[in-house]
């Protein structure tokens, strides 16, 4: 069955321009289409009418790249749990609904155009410490570094983060704690991450705090995360940060 929807969409021509909500009628939308496909249909009609299409970020459209993401009726990535905007299907809406679509809101995410925000501040956090020292040259033997199963499982849970920024968007404080914690923990849990363990957490948290707010443990981020990253990682990051700072382990050496 086809849906007839009313969209309230944030339109903003340039970063420094004043934005406003525009209302569009999205008629005859297939309930099998994804949210982004619905926007594609609306955009084609806008183009046909000689209007500027709605700009939004997207890439893989299979929920793993982290490019897409808009705030749908006040919830980043919309009403479904553990679902990116591209994987949200229109069958979860009812004909006659009014849907409000806004960009991520945070001072660290300036709007570039319409629903597209600049998330390069997240890249900056990764650049500050999201790497390991790796010996160059021939590849090592596969099992030369043993990883406990529990550590590798937990590190994988953290590594699920696709960097979409929904955690920041959901946070009333515009904090990037969940993103940073996932990126820190994913390496800090593994033996390969130990050499930079303390400098990594200090540097990444410091870079984060240049642009983002702070955590008040609302856990809104965890609820919004399309990958279900747990706030447990935030506690893990806090613990490592406090250790690194408090004992100044960066100078004392790297032992745990």
């Amino acid at each position: 069955m086809a849906l007839n929807l009313t969209l309230r969409v944030w339109r903003q021509a340039r970063p420094e321009a004043t934005g406003r909500f525009e209302t569009y009628e999205a008629t005859d939308i297939s309930e099998d289409s994804s949210f982004l496909e619905m926007l594609d249909v609306v955009n084609e009609r806008l183009s046909d009418d000689g209007e500027e299409p709605i700009a939004f970020d997207h890439d893989c459209r299979e929920g793993i790249c982290g490019s897409c993401g808009v705030v749908i009726n006040g919830r980043p990535h919309g009403p479904l749990e553990r679902t990116t905007t591209c994987q949200l299907h229109m069958r979860h809406f009812t004909s006659g609904d009014t849907i409000t679509i806004e960009p991520w809101r945070a001072s660290a995410f300036p709007v570039l155009r319409d629903l597209v925000v600049d998330r390069s501040t997240l890249d900056g956090i990764v650049q500050a410490g999201g790497y390991v020292t790796a010996p160059t040259g021939a590849a090592r033997d596969a099992n030369s570094i043993l990883v406990p199963k529990s550590a590798s499982d937990t590190a994988m849970d953290a590594a699920e983060c696709i960097g979409c920024g929904a955690c920041v968007a959901a946070c009333p404080n515009g904090a990037a704690q969940l993103f940073t914690a996932a990126k820190v923990s994913h390496l800090n849990l593994l033996p390969q991450g130990q050499p930079e363990r303390w400098s990594r957490v200090s540097d990444m948290v410091d870079r984060m705090e240049d642009y983002f707010g702070s955590c008040t443990n609302y856990t809104e981020c965890e609820a919004a995360c399309p990958k279900g990253i747990s706030v447990d990682f935030i506690a893990m990051m806090n613990k490592d940060y406090l250790k690194a700072r408090f004992k100044d382990r960066r100078r004392q050496g790297q032992s745990g």
């Binding site: 919830r75 945070a106 001072s107 009333p172 404080n173 515009g174 707010g213 609820a223």
Partner: peptide
């Protein structure tokens, strides 16, 4: 860190 909030009704999930 978040000068502008959302205009939709519901802001908190959990």
């Amino acid at each position: 860190a978040r000068p502008q909030g959302y205009q939709s009704k519901r802001e908190y999930a959990v």
